[in-house]
Nucleic acid binder design. Structure first.
Lengths: 218, 218
DNA sequence: GTTATGTTTTTTGAATTCAAAATTAAAAAA
DNA sequence: TTTTTTAATTTTGAATTCAAAAAACATAAC
């Protein structure tokens, strides 16, 4: 018998709000008028507030005491900071995954990138980006770490920081992704960690350059 | 003119509760009766609930929907998991700190362990433990990373997991602490990270052994 | 004596209410 | 016209209230 699922309001509100922020319905810097949003969602402020607090931990919203909640506007420094953290955390995830990954999961990971290996010169960026994101989330899942799960947020932040635009092109990252999968498949945790770190570090370095350029041009 | 400080209730309740948990006033596994605690603290359930939610993110309490909040009882697997995360996160903190640390901060860090260098064979464990904890917290602070700050929790968890008992004796760790400080002082981020990771990894390995022993004896 | 059933009490999740603070708008003074 | 002051409105933070669910208790059946 399957137990009846508890769909608590807070979680649903949380999901809805997250979607609204990630899809740009609420823009960075914008004030979140609690009364208004609560009314729109047809709920009271109590569950809304709880959801907002969760999102605050995930760096998606920011609370200024006695002022209100705002959709977080990430600074260049913060985005870079997040990449530094991703570097070590996803590196760890890759290492732990190498110890635990199942044959089935290996097949699934490979499956993510199979479509792009056929015709490397003609890759649909949007589809690749989706696979890329799935890849990183899957590794976090496979690592099956309580702490790392707490940090799935780091994936979300990516979305706002770089909406639908990859930091580096598939021509660079595709082989890196494959190499990470192979290392995990060979149960080589040290190598998987190293490759994963390198992978993200390269993106970070490119990102820093780009952000510096932007600043330099102003 | 100094602006009036906003001491919002939630934060104070949060601090109080954290103290209650860390000092053992509330024991792991114990149910948190909201009404009762709120009355004891002389507040309503609203700010209490917010504080509890914050603590949930820090792994100090656990929420079971429609059941209530409980003081979290960490499993051996979770404690080990936390050490894995500390390994990479504090390693990163050491690396970033090496880039940013001021002369003054170096002096402060050295000062933490000075008292123990005089008479290495006669170290007060309790005092050393305090210095140890300060050391790790300071590095997180110096690294000045938004993401890492979110993870100060990892320090807290340590407290409950290993109340006042060091995983390894000062005779082993003192020199490691000094070496990390020296690496940061020399602005050698790579080395600082490596040393810090090794430092925590050694503790993790010892910890795993001890936990396995405990299980084996049952 | 143990297990099952029904009832009461407690506790949670959520809405509502209320006071204090912040924001906005309006009026008065420079 | 611009700035300052005052008043009105909005919004937050926190308490209270209320319904639904869970836990505890008591009673009845086996």
């Amino acid at each position: 018998m399957t137990p009846i699922e508890h769909i608590d309001l807070t979680k649903r509100v949380y999901e809805e709000l997250k979607k609204m922020i990630l899809e740009g319905e609420l823009n960075p810097g914008q004030k979140i008028l609690q009364e208004k949003i609560a009314e729109q969602l047809g709920i009271s402020r109590t569950p809304l507030l709880k959801a907002l607090q969760m999102l605050e931990y995930e760096l998606l919203v920011e609370s200024i005491p006695r002022r209100g909640m705002y959709v977080k506007k990430l600074s260049a420094a913060e985005i870079i900071d997040i990449f530094y953290a991703r570097e070590v955390l996803e590196g760890l995830a890759a290492r732990l995954s190498a110890q635990k990954i199942s044959e089935n999961q290996i097949v699934q990971l490979r499956g993510l990138f199979d479509p792009f290996l056929q015709d490397k010169d003609n890759i649909n960026f949007e589809a690749y980006e989706k696979a890329d994101r799935r890849f990183h989330i899957m590794i976090l899942k496979i690592s099956d770490s309580t702490v790392l799960k707490r940090l799935e947020m780091i994936g979300n932040v990516l979305l706002i920081a770089y909406q639908a635009s990859l930091v580096r092109p598939p021509s660079e990252t595709l082989s890196e992704h494959i190499a990470i999968i192979e290392a995990m498949s060979a149960r080589n945790g040290d190598l998987a960690e190293k490759l994963c770190r390198d992978h993200i570090r390269k993106s970070r370095i490119k990102l820093i350059k780009e952000l510096e350029m932007q600043v330099g041009h102003r």
